[in-house]
Design a protein around this nucleic acid. Structure first.
Lengths: 102, 102
DNA sequence: TTGTTTTATGTCAAAAATGACATATATTAT
DNA sequence: ATAATATATGTCATTTTTGACATAAAACAA
């Protein structure tokens, strides 16, 4: 945000801050969420790279289309476990996943 | 195992193989389990490095001593989520965790 | 030794994650 | 346009994971 606009907003009583601040997230919580989002994006890219539909991926992961969609959408109801097991099922190596994480 | 012993065992009807084979684990399942074990070990090392007892770490992570013990023991009842959140709570960076994974 | 602290293991009710399903909304092809 | 395919979103019963607790076993000190 440009400084002028920021000042105008603050003059009117608005507070400017990060999403983490707004949600009262600790740094670790932020990192944890960002990590899941990173894996989400990579999962979607990998799936599309292989020209698989969510339904097809669901079959290889033994899950369901709706859960794949939620994974890729970064839905909070999906665990790191499922994300990583899905990446592995797509043939992603530990080394590659390590790169995403680190 | 040395070849001679292997041959002797096979002569007596024993089968030699990997743990994965014995448990009928797919390669992805093996990788997934090994990944958890890697994080387990790293968690224990990190905790000991900081001279924390399991009880003290449990407080930081908002868990319990028994769950920390199970994590470090590689108990199958603990998720990747908890392992990674614990590592983060110990101040481990994404980059460091990435190194463990990759 | 005996006491003290730390870690391991088992159990369980509560909480979170899961697959399945219905169905809405996009996207693409004809 | 409209049919077909793909993705998004909501709900829910079942399964898995969780923290808490008890207690056993191990490590360590006095």
């Amino acid at each position: 945000m440009n400084p002028a606009k920021k000042k105008r907003l603050q003059a009117k009583g608005w507070h400017i801050g990060t999403v983490s601040e707004f949600l009262n997230l600790t740094p670790e919580e932020s990192v944890y969420i960002e990590l899941k989002l990173t894996l989400s994006r990579n999962l979607q890219e990998r799936r599309q790279q292989k020209n698989l539909t969510q339904t097809q991926l669901a079959r290889v992961v033994k899950s369901s289309q709706s859960r794949i969609a939620k994974m890729e959408a970064g839905d909070p109801s999906v665990s790191l476990d499922l994300l990583i097991r899905s990446l592995l099922a797509l043939g992603t190596s530990r080394k590659e996943i390590g790169k995403m994480v680190g």
